[in-house]
């Protein structure tokens, strides 16, 4: 089996002026972007990644006050395989939402279709739901991003569309439930080249996207 990239962590408590670093072990590595979110309800950092051997979503977590990572465990449901990591958001109660794109054809699905899943408990990833209701149109072959505005619960999803539509495509919804689909997305920034990630800046009340161009 192919060896994939190991996952490293870096932790800072001085706004990035210095970092403590290490690696997550044991891990089979990943071929996709790992994701870290902050779990307010448990004061933890949670790492999510697509395992390089079984293509499932695995996770580990650490107290926020200092890096002490658990051994990774599989979180996603049996039989579901993923290719690109989108990301995750979590509300103040610890209820979360994970987005990724599908891996191998599964249930007749095109590879790269966007799916959303609940991130619950401490921690498990629920069964996948489609992000959009259009069976054919919405796939990606790049890592992508999701962010949430706590004040109004707005969840924003941004991804680089298919290779024919090289644009940052965006959709939002207010529910954190995976059973609630995102509305049809709109193309916002043309000529995007690679993946995208998004975050919400509370002080500026703004979503910010990072992209390659």
């Amino acid at each position: 089996m192919t060896a994939h990239c190991r996952i490293a962590w870096a932790w800072t408590n001085n706004s990035g002026n210095s970092w403590t670093t290490g690696t997550i072990t044991p891990t089979n590595g990943t071929f996709a972007k790992p994701e870290v979110i902050y779990d307010t309800s448990r004061d933890r950092f949670v790492l999510l990644y697509i395992n390089g051997q079984d293509y499932r979503i695995w996770g580990a977590w650490s107290p926020a006050i200092g890096p002490s990572w658990t051994a990774p465990v599989v979180l996603s449901q049996p039989g579901e395989r993923f290719r690109y990591m989108g990301g995750a958001v979590m509300d103040a109660t610890g209820t979360g939402l994970v987005v990724a794109s599908t891996g191998n054809p599964y249930f007749g699905t095109r590879p790269g279709r966007l799916v959303q899943m609940a991130l619950t408990g401490s921690y498990s990833v629920g069964w996948q739901y489609w992000v959009f209701d259009d069976f054919y149109a919405h796939i990606t072959r790049r890592h992508f991003g999701i962010a949430r505005r706590a004040s109004n619960g707005r969840v924003l999803l941004a991804f680089r569309a298919t290779s024919s539509v090289r644009a940052m495509v965006v959709s939002t919804k207010t529910s954190i439930s995976p059973s609630v689909e995102f509305p049809a997305p709109t193309e916002e920034i043309a000529w995007m080249i690679n993946g995208v990630d998004v975050a919400f800046n509370g002080s500026a009340a703004a979503f910010t996207a990072g992209l390659s161009w």
Binding site: R149, S171, A206, T208, A209, G210
Partner: peptide
């Protein structure tokens, strides 16, 4: 000429 860029939305996307 690929470059990293940021884009901002202040009206929920």
């Amino acid at each position: 000429r690929r470059q990293v860029a940021t884009a901002v939305s202040t009206d929920d996307g």
